[in-house]
Simulated assay, not measured.
Amino acid sequence: MIGAEYCRTMAAYNAWQNKSLIDALEDLPPGELGRDRGAFFGSIFATINHLLWADGVWVARFDGGERPSGSIADSPRLTEHLSDWRPAREAMDQRITGWAAKLSDHDLEGDLTWYSGSVGREITRTKALCVVQLFNHQTHHRGQIHAMLTAAGAEGYVTDVPFTPDGD
């Protein structure tokens, strides 16, 4: 399904997109972050918090590290201010990039079993599918955030995977 190189590519893409997102968020008037815009989690700020929380949950399943506290219902309130969210987001992106850098194709084989609080039961899926979920979920919510940002008057930014900087 996927290999380690896919994970490294998507981890780099994720970090780049979040850097662009941070820049856009910092240019918004403060009241725009918390305004309910009718998205699934309501506001831009609630959505970026949910995404940070979910990334932490998934990566903890992959690397065995610390998982964020709370449930999906608590996730929109993971941090209180953009000044708290930004360093947490940057640390999460480093964690994802570091995890991906160490992966081999073999690490993506087999199943992953976890208890899902959102559906109230144990689930087993292939590791590869779960990794795809991590990156797909990021893209899904960042698309919502991008739409909310542009609706709030922020300048859009490039989101296409082929334009991910390659470090030069």
Rank of each mutant, 00 (worst) to 15 (best):
I2H: 04
A4D: 05
C7V: 07
T9Y: 01
A11W: 02
A11V: 03
A12C: 13
Y13H: 15
N14E: 06
N14S: 11
Q17M: 13
N18V: 04
N18I: 03
K19Y: 03
K19G: 01
S20T: 07
I22M: 08
D23K: 14
A24G: 04
L25W: 08
L25A: 02
P29S: 12
G31K: 15
L33R: 14
G34T: 07
G38H: 01
F41S: 05
G42N: 12
G42E: 10
S43N: 09
I44E: 03
I44D: 00
F45S: 13
A46M: 02
T47Y: 04
T47R: 01
T47A: 07
I48K: 09
I48N: 01
H50V: 01
L52S: 12
D55G: 07
W58G: 04
W58T: 08
V59W: 04
A60E: 08
R61Y: 02
D63T: 06
E66S: 11
R67Y: 06
P68A: 13
A73H: 09
A73V: 12
A73T: 10
S75E: 00
R77A: 13
T79I: 05
L82K: 14
D84P: 06
W85S: 10
R86H: 03
P87L: 04
M92P: 05
Q94Y: 00
R95F: 07
G98R: 10
G98V: 01
W99P: 07
W99S: 02
A100V: 03
A100W: 02
A100D: 05
L103I: 05
L103F: 05
S104K: 14
H106R: 15
D107A: 13
L108V: 01
G110N: 14
T113S: 15
Y115G: 09
S116G: 10
S116Y: 01
S116A: 14
S118G: 08
V119Y: 04
E122V: 11
R125T: 02
R125L: 11
T126S: 13
T126E: 01
A128N: 02
V132K: 14
Q133R: 15
Q133D: 11
L134S: 02
H137L: 08
Q138R: 12
Q138L: 10
H140N: 12
G143T: 12
Q144G: 06
H146D: 08
A147V: 10
A147R: 13
M148Q: 15
M148P: 03
T150N: 10
A151Y: 01
A151R: 08
E155V: 10
Y157N: 09
Y157R: 09
V158G: 03
T159L: 15
V161F: 15
